[in-house]
Amino acid sequence: MSLDTVVEDIKEEAHARAENIRDDGESRAEEIVSAAESDADEILEQADQEVEREIEQLREQRLSSAKLEAKQKRLEARRDVLGEVSEQVEAELAALEGETREELTRTLLEATSEEFDDGDDVRVYGRADDQELLESILEDYDGYEYAGEYDCLGGVVVESDQSRVRVNNTFDSVFEDVWEENLREISNRLFEQ
């Protein structure tokens, strides 16, 4: 065997080995690229799912927020309507006249008189416009006198030093009690669903 043949054999072996290394490298590179593409696809899929979850969460939050805002607006509107109804009733109470006003005032005064003993000096306060009416009614009560005005829609505030009692039996206080006791029913009737 000649030296040239040995050199040629070594070259061929080196080329073959280089070819194998190149083939192995290309094969390994293809595996790495394939794995990277697979990982990239998986990462992309996870990112898509995360984006979808975030979109759904945001949608739910906004929807929930919108529902809450709508509910608050409805409650506010109901409060406004109830306030208007209350004001209207108060205006009608203040506008009562004649026999109806006298009858209600007498009833309220009679209910308060049960709180006082005979012989007590009783002072009665009422709406400024009702002074004449109150003075007329008080003529039927011994020891009772009109003592001045009280800011109210009508009715009476009665007090006595002897009994140390003060009774507020105004249209306002009666209306407030009735309103509070029946507010749910009033609301249900106004806003039937």
Rank of each mutant, 00 (worst) to 15 (best):
I10S: 09
V167S: 07
E103F: 04
E19G: 09
A91P: 00
E87C: 00
L58V: 11
K73R: 14
R17K: 11
E180Q: 13
E115A: 15
A91T: 00
W179L: 04
R78C: 02
R164Y: 07
T112V: 12
G126A: 08
E8C: 06
V6P: 01
A18R: 09
V6S: 10
R106W: 03
E45D: 14
E60M: 07
L134I: 15
E84M: 00
N182E: 10
A111Y: 03
D24S: 11
D9A: 14
A128D: 13
L133P: 03
S38E: 15
A94W: 01
R189T: 08
I137D: 07
S34N: 12
R166H: 01
E132L: 10
E185R: 05
Q131N: 07
N169F: 03
G143H: 08
L44E: 14
M1Y: 05
L190Y: 00
E192S: 13
R101A: 05
S86K: 02
R101P: 01
G25K: 08
T100C: 02
D23S: 12
L109V: 06
E159P: 02
T170V: 04
E92D: 03
K67R: 15
A147M: 05
D177Y: 08
T170R: 01
E8W: 10
E13T: 09
G148A: 08
R62K: 12
S187H: 02
S27V: 04
R164M: 10
E145W: 04
E99L: 04
L44N: 12
K11F: 11
D130V: 09
L153Q: 07
A14N: 09
D129C: 04
